[in-house]
Design a protein around this nucleic acid. Structure first.
Length: 107
DNA sequence: CAGTTGACGGCCC
DNA sequence: GGGGCCGCCAACT
């Protein structure tokens, strides 16, 4: 399993991450993160709906329901979405990567 | 192994 | 803010 997917489960409720941030932590390109999400086999276990573009745009969701579903799930976490975009105030950044690693067995 | 294709980002205008 | 361009990297022909 890729690191990026594991990081998703560490995101606090009410927050989202950008592809950029995941790319930074995983030391890869945002494009690669996009691929990983697109090929994500298990949207249930890994909350890939919390991943948005740096502009706040939702971009896509391969799970059932598509973008509207993704939007709905985010709304359930009290995240305000205007015009298909998440307010940047909801962006989450990984501060202590080592802490995350120690709390996740698969690392 | 060599293209192609995106759920992107940064830069420029 | 938005469109055009190019670099990026993993997955899939």
């Amino acid at each position: 399993m890729h690191k990026a997917l594991l990081l998703l489960s560490t995101i606090p409720c009410g927050k989202v991450v950008t592809y950029q941030e995941l790319a930074r932590v995983c030391e890869t390109s945002p494009r690669a993160i996009g691929q990983i999400m697109a090929h994500n086999i298990d949207p249930i276990r890994y909350p890939c709906y919390k991943v948005v573009a740096s502009s706040g745009k939702l971009c896509g969701y391969s799970g059932a329901g598509g973008l509207s579903r993704k939007k709905q799930l985010l709304t359930l976490e009290r995240i305000i979405i205007k015009n298909g975009r998440v307010d940047p105030a909801h962006f989450y950044t990984f501060k202590n990567i080592s802490g995350i690693i120690s709390s996740s067995p698969e690392f």
